[in-house]
């Protein structure tokens, strides 16, 4: 292996690392705030990339219909609850968030698609379409089960994954899509050329890590979000709405997933079912961070990305096997770190 290949693999590894890192961040974010191990996180990435690719082709993306369907379902659930509670405020909120906002977003995108307004507008439209899907999914699938065990929530997340890939297949088809590069700038770093896209990906994930780290460790609101996960009743007694904090963290998760999709859509071909493997690699990084620490998860993502990149070179056939078998010793290490507190917590 010469220096050229070495640096190429390095760049490739860091590139994947940044995506795994974004996945891990969203997984940790959702887990610490809602206790949901969200195995459908990667599907937001897919939706982001595929939506942008359709907008770029001047088509109305199927995401509009997905958004519309979810919004109507959420409206029915919220509306029923508003009727039961005879709450005018809840009813108004349901009309606003489940009808008006999705209608404006969906209708707006459907109206201007094909008018070639440029990449920047398409990206904004993509985020506006995919962003609300997270909180809608939370309202429909998770909120009614929010008090159940982590394992039940994990099964729900698996079911949600099935639903999203099925919808993606229906609306985008089985073929793969690519999005245009955000930038074609290239930077020379000594003898190596680094593409602007890779830098954009790495900078975005670094930025998110710093922002989320500060948010959760320094802001009262961030701390209250974590409090809801560890003690839901206690949080409610303190006046924190567990439903709202759940929707907020799912909104962040879908936005992060969508942005990741926009970032890597031009580097990798994205299929309707690309999401799961990316989620699982993000999950490995998240476990490295103990499903709690953003910086540690980022370090895990870098290690993972590099191992993947270099093992693809040395033992390509066994690349995935090596990656996933890493998870077991990793989990055991984490478990030992966490200590055998099972019984104590319960007592």
């Amino acid at each position: 292996m010469d220096f050229g290949i070495f640096t190429f693999l390095l760049q490739d590894g860091l590139n994947s690392a940044a995506i795994y890192c974004l996945m891990a961040i969203a997984i940790i974010l959702v887990f610490t705030t809602t206790r949901v191990l969200f195995v459908a996180q990667g599907d937001f990435l897919v939706l982001g990339a595929l939506t942008l690719s359709q907008l770029q082709l001047g088509r109305v993306p199927g995401t509009v219909w997905i958004l519309a369907g979810l919004a109507l379902l959420a409206f029915a659930m919220e509306g029923a609850q508003a009727l039961r509670e005879r709450s005018r405020r809840r009813a108004l909120r349901a009309v606003l968030f489940c009808l008006l906002v999705p209608a404006l977003v969906g209708g707006g995108v459907a109206w201007f698609s094909g008018k070639e307004l440029g990449l920047a507008i398409d990206i904004l439209a993509t985020i506006a379409l995919v962003g609300p899907i997270g909180p809608l999914l939370y309202r429909i699938a998770f909120q009614p089960l929010a008090d159940k065990s982590i394992l039940v929530l994990m099964v729900v997340a698996t079911a949600v994954h099935f639903v999203i890939i099925s919808l993606s297949l229906i609306f985008f088809g089985a073929e793969g899509w690519r999005t245009p590069a955000l930038t074609d700038a290239q930077f020379a770093l000594g003898p190596v050329l680094i593409s602007g896209q890779v830098i954009a990906i790495i900078v975005t994930s670094l930025l998110l890590i710093v922002v989320l780290f500060l948010f959760f460790s320094n802001s009262v609101y961030g701390k209250s979000l974590i409090a809801t996960a560890s003690n839901r009743v206690g949080a409610r007694l303190m006046g924190i709405s567990t439903a709202q904090s759940g929707m907020l963290s799912f909104a962040m998760a879908s936005a992060i997933g969508c942005v990741s999709g926009i970032l890597i859509g031009s580097i990798t071909t994205i299929y309707y079912d690309t999401g799961l493997v990316l989620t699982l690699k993000g999950l490995i990084a998240a476990v490295f961070g103990g499903l709690a620490s953003f910086p540690a998860a980022a370090a895990g993502a870098v290690i993972l990305g590099l191992i993947e990149s270099y093992s693809a070179f040395f033992a390509s056939a066994y690349k995935e096997i090596i990656l996933f078998s890493l998870l077991i010793p990793l989990l055991m290490w984490r478990f030992v770190l966490a200590g055998h507190q099972d019984l104590e917590e319960e007592a």
Binding site: L37, S149, I150, M154, L283, E320, F324, L327, L331, F335
Partner: peptide, 19 residues
């Protein structure tokens, strides 16, 4: 994997299944 508790175990079985 069964030394691990709850969701750690589930994640570990994902790894086993994929591997």
């Amino acid at each position: 994997t069964l030394r691990l508790s709850g969701y750690y175990l589930s994640i570990a079985t994902i790894a086993w299944g994929l591997g």
